[in-house]
Design a protein around this nucleic acid. Structure first.
Length: 309
DNA sequence: AGATTAGGCCGCCATT
DNA sequence: ACAATGGCGGCCTAAT
């Protein structure tokens, strides 16, 4: 995604590649499983790549990613805006990174939708695009067929989110490992955390988070967590937000869902047991949070991503 | 599914 | 003066 000139998003070992058509500045991403449609290029990852170029590619793409633009006010070519509108109307996923949201705005795709952009441009976007509900403090916004992200790094988070949705948590983790970034930053996470660098290893609350991860299946309360961190619940919550950008419970629930996804992908445990292992008291609880995070049910997710053992 | 209840979150403020 | 803390009350979310 960071590649400035029409090349590759992640790298050849990942299941996702991005191309840019030179004149329009439109990226086209294809993610496809082995044996999928298009002109597959074999890779070492087990996933094939499909190469596509130009505005014609937008007409066929399942996902179109619009990268950041420098002059956000500059009017974009009408043929580009038209191609984006058509793609969207036909059901393609439209994605923007950073200031790419301004292009979507010009195409009218943000009206009535929630959207994110770089923090330095949020006010301007709201101004240029009065119909859009600009979310200022999130890494990215997933509206299903419209996804927008804050700065470039948040664009990586968003793309990982896409890979996770398309190919499952395991594939996303492989990509994350390969490109050396954190495996999962949820979209709702704040753009700013009080500490510029997240405390690594044994600093701050990291040990407590590690401790929590080992107890995903236990009904921990914030009071319990605070006790482990040796401070009051109030202070714990405050420090937690400063370090992670979320609240203790939200982070914990997110990790539980992630664990559930991994279990669903890698095992045949009944949903009831998956729920129990991941700290959801009941399968209903799991379904509830699962739907919220993944827009599907655990069973549907499993049948889509269960890796043949 | 809907209502009740327990627990979490956050602004505010006094205290350290 | 200043920064961090922790308790309280009210609103909101999650669990039952």
């Amino acid at each position: 995604v960071l590649a400035p000139e029409g090349v590759v998003a992640f790298d050849l070992a990942t299941p996702c590649q991005v191309f840019r058509s030179a004149p329009s500045g439109v990226y086209d991403v294809r993610v496809c499983a082995p044996g999928g449609p298009g002109s597959p290029v074999p890779t070492t990852s087990g996933f094939d790549l499909v190469v596509a170029h130009g505005l014609e590619a937008v007409a066929a793409a399942g996902t179109v990613i619009v990268p950041g633009v420098e002059d956000v006010r500059a009017p974009r070519p009408p043929e580009l805006l038209g191609a984006l509108r058509e793609a969207s109307a036909r059901g393609a996923r439209i994605v923007s990174i950073c200031t790419g949201a301004f292009v979507l705005g010009q195409a009218g795709l943000l009206d009535g939708r929630r959207a994110a952009t770089h923090w330095g441009y949020a006010d301007l976007l709201a101004e240029c695009c009065p119909g859009a509900a600009v979310e200022r403090d999130v890494l990215y916004v997933d509206e299903g067929d419209l996804l927008t992200s804050a700065g470039v790094a948040a664009g990586i988070d968003l793309c990982l989110h896409l890979v996770r949705r398309d190919l499952g948590a395991e594939a996303a983790n492989r990509v994350a490992r390969r490109i050396v970034v954190a495996p999962h930053r949820a979209g709702g996470q704040a753009q700013f955390t009080e500490r510029p660098v997240p405390p690594a290893g044994d600093e701050g609350l990291a040990p407590t988070r590690a401790w929590m991860l080992e107890r995903l299946d236990e009904p921990l309360t914030v009071a319990d967590m605070a006790a482990h961190a040796c401070c009051s619940p109030r202070t714990f919550a405050r420090r937690f937000r400063a370090e992670t950008g979320t609240t203790p419970l939200q982070w914990f629930l997110g990790e539980r869902v992630l664990a559930a996804r991994r279990l669903l992908e890698a095992s045949d445990l009944p949903v009831e047991l998956v729920a129990a292992r991941c700290g959801f008291g009941t399968a209903a609880g799991l379904r509830d949070h699962f739907r919220r995070a993944c827009q599907t049910t655990p069973t549907a997710y499993r049948s889509a991503f269960r890796t043949a053992a």
